[in-house]
Design a protein around this nucleic acid. Structure first.
Lengths: 227, 227
DNA sequence: GCAAAAGTGTTGAGATTACACCCATGC
DNA sequence: GCATGGGTGTAATCTCAACACTTTTGC
């Protein structure tokens, strides 16, 4: 778009611009985040959140979505800006100002894609992350705080759940992220009173008594007092 | 710090990095923001939030604090990151990724400093801002939303008030920012019950009945359910 | 029949709202 | 004396938290 403006060689040097994406999912009753192994540089061999450089002419959010799709195959997800991390020392190789994003994908994404930049890719439980490259442990902590906070006053849980789910599964997501148990009767009263769910005509059959299936009436982010 | 790493001429070009600072204050019973007049470029003559380029080796937050002090003389203030705006089209001159900050200064700062980059500097009522340069109207809207939200669950009002103040003045700040009237008795009960204030031994004398003066017990940001 | 998850109401405590009158001062 | 903002309490309502038993199914 702005290609007719040449790179500003005459201007004073600027830090590099990058994005990092913290992708959360719920898997096996645990909150997990996707990490990739850094292949080269001072942090080679360490785990980090997926990301990449922002080229001139592309919005950082577009870079985040594009890199995510390229590296993981994940296309449809909830993506919001988290915070920008710009300490000069966060990357010893160069001063990189990184816009961190925060993404949610529903249960088990089959993310087995590959990317030349990274050796491996794996979901890690958020409560037990390894020592990460760059300042990514701080990024992870910030992202978890944001997720916990937004769970209370928005409806973004929808992005962590498949299209149909039981109230038990929904409650389990809340309990997993907030890290404490909730009363089942109070939870159901509250969530149903909000009118965000519609009961489907189907039930989930499992090892025990069948459970009513529900779906969200709206699958866009809304501000609502949930908990 | 990282001066021994030369500017990455070998790397692909990166957007420029800048900061913009939305400074709020309460003045004459109105919420105001500080704007400067852009002197050159496509937006010459328009108003914008103060800001500047982030040099290699400096954290964006440090740039924001430094520019603010240089341009306005304001040194001691509340400063937090707001959000990063990086749409390529936001600045027609070049792709500038700008980290926006959000600052609060207590009543009437005597900010009459000058800076060669800007012609004029002036406080504008936030509810009646002119058409701003870049995407700064969107930045303003985002900042106002953040201020309103944080007023409800933190104690950051302290940064908008002088060291001593009356409960009436405190309530007026809340009413100004939230844009609606509050019940005086309920407000006082609530705010005093939080234990964030201590009554001083002095009173404010004015045109009418003298009012008890209060001060905050803590002047650091804390998360607390205020309203 | 038994283990395991689903489903369902009531009560008490605390928080929030609504509301009206007297007080101290400057002019 | 009057206009103006300061100061104070109570009752009704709503919200939130605590709490136990029955149902349905697979095995």
């Amino acid at each position: 778009m702005l290609a007719h403006y040449p790179p500003p060689a005459t201007q004073s040097p600027s830090p590099l611009v990058a994005v990092d994406v913290v992708i959360f999912t719920i898997d096996a009753g645990a909150l997990k985040a996707l990490l990739v192994e850094v292949r080269s540089g001072p942090f080679a061999g360490r785990w980090a959140f997926p990301g990449g450089r922002v080229p001139v002419g592309e919005a950082p959010e577009a870079t985040a979505a594009r890199e995510l799709r390229a590296q993981t195959g994940i296309g449809d997800l909830y993506l919001e800006q988290l915070r920008t991390f710009g300490e000069p020392a966060r990357d010893p190789h160069a001063h990189v100002v990184s816009v961190a994003y925060f993404a949610l994908v529903p249960g088990m994404g089959e993310t087995q894609a590959h990317h030349p930049k990274y050796a491996r890719m794996q979901w890690f439980p958020v409560r037990a992350l390894p020592s990460l490259a760059y300042d990514h442990n701080a990024v992870a902590q910030y992202a978890l705080g944001r997720l916990q906070a937004k769970l209370a006053y928005t409806n973004i849980v929808y992005a962590l759940l498949p299209h149909e789910f039981t109230l038990g599964e929904l409650q389990e997501v809340y309990e997993t992220i907030r890290g404490r148990r909730l009363d089942r009767r109070n939870f159901r009263k509250k969530i149903l009173a909000l009118g965000l769910l519609r009961a489907l005509r189907r039930q989930r059959r499992g090892a025990h008594r069948p459970a009513q299936l529900y779906a969200f009436t709206h699958r866009e982010p809304m501000n609502i007092q949930m908990l």
